[in-house]
Design a protein around this nucleic acid. Sequence first.
DNA 1: GATTTAACATGCTGTATATCAAGTATATCA
DNA 2: TGATATACTTGATATACAGCATGTTAAATC
Lengths: 243, 243
Amino acid sequence: MNQFSIFTSHMDTNCQNPERHCIGCEFKSPLFYFLTTDELNLVEKNKITVHFKKGETIRKQGTYMSHVISVNSGLAKLYLEGIEQRNAIIRIVKPTNFIGGPGIYLDQRHHFTITALMDTTICFIDVAVFTDIIDKNKIFAHEFMKDFSKNILSVYNRLLILTQKQMPGRMADTLLYLFDEIFESNSFSMHLSRQDISELSGMSKDSAIKILREFQHDGIIHLTENQMKLLDPEKLNMISKTG
Amino acid sequence: MNQFSIFTSHMDTNCQNPERHCIGCEFKSPLFYFLTTDELNLVEKNKITVHFKKGETIRKQGTYMSHVISVNSGLAKLYLEGIEQRNAIIRIVKPTNFIGGPGIYLDQRHHFTITALMDTTICFIDVAVFTDIIDKNKIFAHEFMKDFSKNILSVYNRLLILTQKQMPGRMADTLLYLFDEIFESNSFSMHLSRQDISELSGMSKDSAIKILREFQHDGIIHLTENQMKLLDPEKLNMISKTG
DNA sequence: GATTTAACATGCTGTATATCAAGTATATCA
DNA sequence: TGATATACTTGATATACAGCATGTTAAATC
C-alpha cells in the first residue's frame, strides 16, 4: 500500500462522515490531542468540514482569515504569490497537518494561498475560538508554538537553499523533501506538476524539466506517466550536499 | 541630529547605568511595557546587561539559547549561516528591538548568529522566566506573538525578493529597508560593509559594489567614506518595482 | 474522429551574475 | 618608517539560467 492509497483512504472514510465528532476523529491534527474534552467539543461546535476538488483554491492570499485549518485527507500546496504570477511554494501540506500562519495574531489575513493538489478534505476552525483556547490551555499553546516554530525553521532553510545552491542542488533538496518528508516513500504518484516542482525549487518550469531529465539519465530517479521513483538516494544526497 | 547620534546617545546613557531598573528604563523593547510591575521586577532580577564592541559575536547559531534579547543601544545584524561561509542576513536589529526566535519553544537553540555592527548594549533575559510570564500574561503573550509574526512576514518577503528579483531590484529593496525602516533617514553612517550589504541582497560582494556604483552614477545615492545618502527616492522605488 | 487544449520536452540564444585577477586606498602593526 | 593586512574597486572571462521557438504527446471537447 503506497502513500497515495493511504491519502485516499483518509479522504473516503471522512467524506462519508463529514460532521463526525472531533473526539475520536483520527484525521485531526496531532495538535488537538492536547485539548481537553470540553475544549474539543467547543472546537467541534465551531468548525466546518469542506471537501475540495483537485486544483481548487482553499484559501487565497490577502483574504480575511476567519478560520485556522486542519487537513483531514488529500494533499495541498501552500505558496507565496510573488512578482508577475510567479509563486514560491513554501510547504506541501499532507494529512493530518495544521495550517495557521502569521496572520492569526497580526492582522487576521492569509499571507499565502493554499490550493488542493488532489481531492482534499479540510476542517476550518473558528480563529477566535482557537486563540481563546490557546489563552487558556498552556500545554496546547506550547504545542502550537512548536508547530509554528517548525514552519519558520523550514522557511529559513528554504531561503538558504534557494539563494545559495544552484539548480541541481535545489532540485535534489526538493525531491528529498518530497520522498522523505511528504510521501515518506521512495516512490509516489505525481500529484505535482512540473510547474509545482519548479515553484518548490525556485527555477523556471523549463529548467526543472531539464534537471529532472538529467536525473533520470543519471539513474537517480525514474519517471513514468504518473509516478516518480527514487533509484539512487545516495547520489541524490550527494548532489544536495555539493550544491 | 541624525540617526547615528541617537544610537550613540542611547548607548552612552545606558553604559553609565548598566544595572538600571527595568521600570523607567527607556531602552527596553516596547514589548515589556505590557508587563505588570511585578513581572518587570522579576525580569530585572533575571536579566544581565552586556556591552559588545563592534564586530563581536553576540550569539552564535547552534548554541544553547539560555536568554532572549533586548537591544538597548547600538546596532546588530542577524544572519543565517549558509553553505561555505556564505551568510544570509535576514534582519538588522536596532534599539529597542526584541530578539527571540524559533528556538524558544522548539529546541532552546539559536537558529541564527547575531553580531554587533557597532558598539552595542544588550539585555539578556532568562528564557524560562520569559516563557513563564507569557504563560501568565495573556496581553503580553499576544504582543509577543505579534512581534514574532512580523518577523516571519519579513522573512516571507525576503524570500520572494531574493528569489524573484534581479540584482538592481534586490539592491534597491535593501537600500529602501536601510533608509526607511532601520535608520529612518535619507542618510546614514556606514556601519555596514559592502560584504554586509551583499549578504542582505543575496549577491556576491563584487556585484554589490558594482550595483552601488551604478546607483551613484545614476544619481540615486551618494557614497562617501562613511556615509550613504539617498538623493533620488523616486528612482529607487521605481527600480524596486521593476525588478 | 477531428479539433482543441494542456502538460511535457528540448535545442538555441542572450543575459544576468559569479568568479578571477589585478589594483588602489586605508588602517594596523612591528 | 616600512610592511602587512583589510576593505574597496574595476574590468575581463566563464557560466548558470531564463526565455523563446518548436515539437510531442495525451487528454478533453465537440
